[in-house]
Amino acid sequence: MDETGKELVLALYDYQEKSPREVTMKKGDILTLLNSTNKDSWKVEVKITVNGKTYERQGFVPAAYVKKL
């Protein structure tokens, strides 16, 4: 869990989004878990840094590609 009590997951593999509802992640990324009720895909939040500014983006990733921490 992070400092706000949200559950975290670790990306086990790289994943490139295939639709606007998904998010891209790299192996080793730590993501905030938002919903894990679907056995196939979990909703997560990723933090992306562009030019020194951090943005948050929500979307789905394959459940088999992440592990709860």
Rank of each mutant, 00 (worst) to 15 (best):
M1L: 12
E45Y: 08
G59P: 00
Y65L: 14
E3D: 13
A63D: 02
E7S: 11
L33K: 02
I30C: 07
G5E: 12
L12A: 02
K6N: 10
E22V: 04
K6W: 10
Y55D: 03
V23E: 01
S41L: 15
P20M: 08
G28K: 02
L10S: 03
V66G: 00
Q58R: 10
D2H: 14
V61C: 05
F60K: 01
R21C: 15
V46W: 06
T37I: 08
V23A: 03
L34D: 00
E22D: 06
K53E: 11
E45S: 15
R57G: 02
L8Q: 09
V44N: 00
V66C: 10
Q16A: 11
K39R: 11
G28Y: 03
T54D: 07
T37G: 09
L10N: 02
L33G: 00
G59R: 00
E56K: 15
Y55C: 09
T32D: 02
E3I: 13
V23W: 05
I30P: 00
E56H: 15
L33Y: 02
R21E: 15
I30L: 07
V66F: 07
Q16L: 12
D40A: 09
E56V: 15
E3Y: 13
T4Y: 13
K43C: 15
E7A: 11
V61D: 02
W42F: 05
L8A: 05
K39S: 11
G28N: 05
Y15R: 01
K43E: 14
A11Q: 01
G52I: 03
K26A: 07
T4Q: 13
D2W: 14
S19I: 04
G5A: 13
K47Y: 10
K68P: 08
Q16P: 04
I48K: 07
T24K: 03
Y55Q: 08
A63R: 09
K26F: 10
K53Q: 12
K39W: 08
Y15Q: 01
M1F: 13
M1K: 13
F60L: 06
K18Q: 13
V9M: 03
G59E: 01
S19W: 07
E56D: 10
D29K: 03
P62V: 07
D40E: 11
K53M: 13
F60Q: 02
G28C: 09
N51L: 08
K26T: 07
K67T: 12
G5L: 12
L69H: 03
E17G: 15
S36W: 09
R21I: 12
T49V: 13
V66T: 02
T4A: 12
S19P: 04
T24C: 07
K18P: 04
K27E: 04
D29L: 05
G59W: 05
